[in-house]
Amino acid sequence: MTTSFQLNGKPAAFDGDPETPLLWVLRDHLGLTGTKYGCGVAQCGACTVHLDGKNRRSCVTPVGMVAGKAVTTIEGVAGKTAEAVKAAWVAIDVPQCGFCQSGQVMSAIGLLTAKPRPSDTDIDNAMAGNICRCATYVRIRQAIKDAAGVKGARA
């Protein structure tokens, strides 16, 4: 069975079980490997993509659910907010091992799209689902604030 959807602004299709998680369709069938497998149970956020512009864990999203919808991955995410987040990430060298970072970046873009000037609590809440085992959290927080142009220390 074929599932059709928009992927990074272009038409895409998957021929197979519609229960297949979007993560594996992206990685194993469509060759977009920036989206990572970390846990498979929506606990780590390494697989975060945007579904119709909102953060979504692709590891627990059956591909059938995205039929006719727009999926954006780290490879295709663009626009002013995306560029600001990526630039902020590189400017202060957020990544260590780097494996979780595409998911972190996608979640941060999703946050700033919804809340252009997030508070520390907003950041805590929006990013709580993204684990970084290297614990680059101090810099993730800083990069989000830098991208948003928000100043000030944590309360």
Partner: peptide, 16 residues
């Protein structure tokens, strides 16, 4: 930092 931010860094998991 850049390839690890934009998703282009290649890990073994990404080899096809």
């Amino acid at each position: 930092s850049k390839p690890k931010t934009d998703g282009s860094a290649l890990f073994t998991q990404d080899v096809r």
